[in-house]
Simulated assay, not measured.
Amino acid sequence: MAKVYMYVVDRDFGFAPNPFHGFCTLATCKPRIRNVAAPDDWVIGMGGKKLKATGRCVFAMKVTHVVTYNEYWTNPDYNDKKPIPNGSKRIMLGDNIYSQQENNQWKQAHSHHSYPDGSTNIHNLTRDTKSNKVLISKHFYYFGRAAPIVPDLLLARLGFRNAIGHRTFPLAEAREMLSWLDQEFLYQQNQLIANPFNFDKGITHYSVENNRITVIK
Results as ranks from 00 to 15, higher is better:
Arg90Val: 01
Ala60Glu: 11
Thr64Gly: 14
Asp80Leu: 12
Ser99Glu: 12
Ser88Ala: 07
Pro83Trp: 05
Trp73Ala: 08
Asn86Cys: 09
Lys62Val: 10
Gly94Arg: 00
Asn70Asp: 14
Met61Gln: 08
Tyr78Ser: 12
Asn79Pro: 11
Val67Pro: 13
Asn96His: 03
Arg90Ala: 03
Asp95Cys: 01
Trp73Asp: 10
Gly87Asp: 01
Ser99Phe: 08
Lys62Pro: 13
Ser99Asn: 11
Pro83Arg: 03
Ile91Glu: 01
Asn70Gln: 11
Asn79Tyr: 12
Tyr78Asp: 15
Lys82Tyr: 11
Ala60Lys: 00
Trp73Ile: 05
Asn75Cys: 11
Asp77Ser: 12
Asn86Lys: 05
Asn79Glu: 15
Met61Trp: 04
Asp80Ala: 15
Val63Thr: 05
Ser99Gln: 13
Pro85Asn: 11
Val66Tyr: 07
Thr74Asp: 14
Leu93Phe: 01
Trp73Thr: 04
Val67Asp: 15
Ser99Ile: 04
Pro76Gln: 11
Asn96Asp: 06
Ala60Asn: 04
Thr68Met: 05
Met61Asn: 06
Gly94Val: 00
Arg90Met: 02
Tyr69Ile: 06
Ser88Met: 06
Thr74His: 13
Tyr78Met: 13
Ile97Gln: 04
Pro83Gln: 08
Val66His: 06
Tyr69Ala: 14
Pro76Lys: 04
Lys62Ser: 13
Asn75Glu: 14
Asn75Ile: 03
Ile97Cys: 09
Pro85Phe: 08
His65Thr: 06
Asn96Cys: 03
Lys62Asp: 12
Asn96Val: 00
Thr64Ala: 09
Asn79His: 13
Asn86Glu: 14
Thr64Ile: 02
Asn70Arg: 10
Tyr78Glu: 15
Thr64His: 09
Thr74Phe: 14
Trp73Asn: 07
Ala60Thr: 05
Tyr98His: 07
Ile97Asp: 03
Tyr69Ser: 14
Pro76Tyr: 11
Ser88Gly: 12
Lys81Thr: 14
Asn75Leu: 07
Lys62Met: 14
Tyr78Phe: 15
Ser99Pro: 06
Ile97Glu: 04
Ser99Ala: 10
Ile91Thr: 02
Lys82Asp: 13
Lys81Cys: 15
His65Trp: 02
Ser99Arg: 05
Asp80Ile: 06
Ile97Arg: 04
Arg90Thr: 03
Gly87Tyr: 00
Ser88Glu: 06
Tyr72Cys: 09
